[in-house]
């Protein structure tokens, strides 16, 4: 956490920056607090999980989700963040497994997937996912059959992705809430089965 540029410890450096921005009239304390309150209140993997569970129980919603992720998110009351990216939903099937990375930085649909995991932002994941996804998935404990086709989606600021995992076979009779509870943030990125 420490180190970096300048002589001050990083926390002091951030405080100093805030003070100077406030003095320059570029931000206010209230605004900073509001931004944080908003992200904590609205961004959660439960949102993406809800969309998946709805798609598993409602084939028409699944079709809309794959055709227009933004509209399908809005249907359930979720926004795609403040900067209006294109949300693409990619569906896992018996023969295709999708996974998401952002090699350039760490673009991620936070509003729907919650906080991006530390590993998603790591140099190791960013560098390796596009080159050897099977090796990466194995480190997550996910071993796919040899004939499964893997598609790696390199996201950016404009297009962000959500994986629609396969519906578990034992899910018959489960309601949407129960199904949503099966979906993890790794499942929504494609580093877990669901």
């Amino acid at each position: 956490m420490s180190g970096g540029h300048g002589e001050l410890p990083v926390a002091a450096r951030v405080r100093r920056l805030e003070e100077r921005l406030i003095a320059a009239g570029l931000v206010t304390d209230d605004e900073l607090d509001e931004v944080l309150a908003q992200v904590f209140a609205s961004a959660a993997p439960a949102n993406g999980a809800r969309m998946v569970a709805r798609a598993w129980t409602d084939p028409a919603y699944r079709d809309r989700l794959l055709a227009d992720g933004n509209a399908a998110a809005a249907e359930l009351g979720f926004g795609a963040g403040s900067h209006g990216y294109l949300l693409k939903v990619v569906e896992n099937t018996a023969s295709v497994h999708n996974m998401i990375v952002c090699t350039l930085c760490s673009c991620y649909p936070t509003a729907l997937l919650g906080p991006s995991p530390s590993w998603y932002k790591s140099f190791a994941y960013r560098s390796r996912a596009v080159r050897e996804p099977r090796g990466v998935l194995a480190e997550f404990g996910l071993e796919l059959p040899d004939d499964t086709e893997i598609r790696v989606w390199d996201a950016n600021s404009e297009t962000r992705y959500l994986v629609l995992p396969q519906r578990p076979e034992a899910a018959d009779g489960m309601d949407e809430n129960a199904l949503a509870s099966l979906v993890t943030s790794n499942g929504l990125i494609g580093t877990a089965v669901r």
Binding site: V101, T103, L104, P117, S118, W119, S122, F123, A124, Y125, R126, S127, R128, A129, V130, R131, V136, E139, F140, G141, D154, S185, T191
Partner: peptide, 14 residues
């Protein structure tokens, strides 16, 4: 950084 090598294993816990 896509495709660079040498960054080692992924710390998959979060």
């Amino acid at each position: 950084m896509g495709g660079q090598t040498g960054f080692g294993p992924i710390a998959a816990d979060d």
